[in-house]
């Protein structure tokens, strides 16, 4: 069944008048599903984004990603709660079937603060760095981080509130703030001898809450979410998160990236509207700096892939195409 979609409202009306599904329109044979015709009629022309009707798989990567994220976090929970013992620990440090894994930023703070260099920790950190070198840096953020999925829903809510004029505008900070935070908390842990950031790390707090149950400190995460919903969209992830910075740095050299096919691109900028970080696609799609999305803040979430109608964006491995 070939499903051809229409962007023209007249065709829909024609379709309804004739009472058939197959309508000759010009030289092409159009087949319109009743559902899409209905949706079109309800919303009226021009109100609904055409791409939503045209791309039947527009949530493909989002759904894959959400199920992956939820299963990883469920695995953490189940390993303790049901004693499955597959992924023991939390996101700061864990063991996958006995192999140590450790969050690089937490490990770095810890080593600077305590000057204790444990071989297990070094193995765990290296393993995680290698995993994210293969998967692509801030892949962690959109595919694993439990705070991300809450913030993603918060972002939707924020957009809705903006649309309803309940909040006036989105406040923007400098996106280099997070590098300052990264350096600041590393310096502070070295000088104070304590892993200060881990007290306020929403990723670790949330991960521990999932596995061991929530304490009062969860209110801090709620406060951050409220700040994001009502004041600044995705503020923590975009401007502040030093954990994200550690993966950002890994992601810059990670070869697994979004590939941009210039020839197919119609320059519609739908990918940029879909992207969760406003500056990620700029360098590549706007300025044509490279064939790949090179920004370290790219989380490989796949929202731009879902949004692209030209098939110009795809997951690909940089450097590999040159080798072959």
């Amino acid at each position: 069944m070939s499903e051809l979609l229409i962007s023209d409202n007249e065709t829909v009306e024609q379709d309804q008048v004739s009472g058939e599904n197959n309508v000759a329109s010009g030289t092409k044979k159009l087949k319109v599903s009743k559902k899409s015709a209905k949706a079109k009629k309800r919303k009226g022309p021009g109100l609904r984004d055409v791409s939503i009707l045209e791309n039947p798989h527009r949530n493909k990567w989002r759904l894959i990603r959400w199920s992956f994220l939820l299963s990883v976090n469920f695995l953490f929970f189940a390993s303790f709660y049901f004693d499955v013992q597959i992924l023991e620990g939390s996101l700061s440090g864990s063991r996958l079937l006995g192999f140590h894994l450790a969050d690089p930023f937490a490990a770095l703070q810890m080593m600077l603060a305590s000057q204790v260099f444990n071989i297990n920790l070094i193995i765990g950190t290296t393993t995680v760095i290698i995993i994210y070198l293969l998967l692509g840096g801030r892949f962690f953020c959109s595919w694993v981080c439990p705070y991300h999925i809450l913030a993603e829903w918060g972002e939707t809510l924020h957009k809705y509130l903006l649309h309803k004029r309940i909040i006036k505008r989105n406040h923007v900070f400098n996106d280099r703030f997070k590098y300052f935070f990264f350096a600041l908390f590393l310096l502070l842990s070295a000088f104070s001898g304590y892993t200060i950031f881990e007290v306020i790390n929403p990723v670790a707090i949330l991960s521990r809450s999932i596995v061991y149950g929530a304490g009062l400190i969860i209110l801090w995460v709620v406060a951050l979410l409220l700040f994001e919903i009502f004041y600044s969209r995705r503020a923590w992830c975009r401007y502040f998160c030093p954990v994200g910075v550690s993966y950002n740095l890994i992601g810059r050299i990670a070869p697994f990236k979004i590939h941009w096919n210039v020839k197919k691109c119609s320059n519609c900028k739908k990918c940029q509207r879909a992207c969760m970080v406003p500056w990620v696609l700029k360098e590549t799609v706007n300025m044509g700096a490279a064939d790949y999305v090179v920004s370290g803040d790219c989380t490989r979430c796949g929202l731009c892939l879902d949004a692209c109608e030209d098939g110009a964006l795809s997951y690909n491995i940089r450097y590999l195409d040159k080798l072959i």
Partner: peptide, 8 residues
Amino acid sequence: ASCIKCGQ
């Protein structure tokens, strides 16, 4: 300083 707070 050296506890990574993983709960293992």
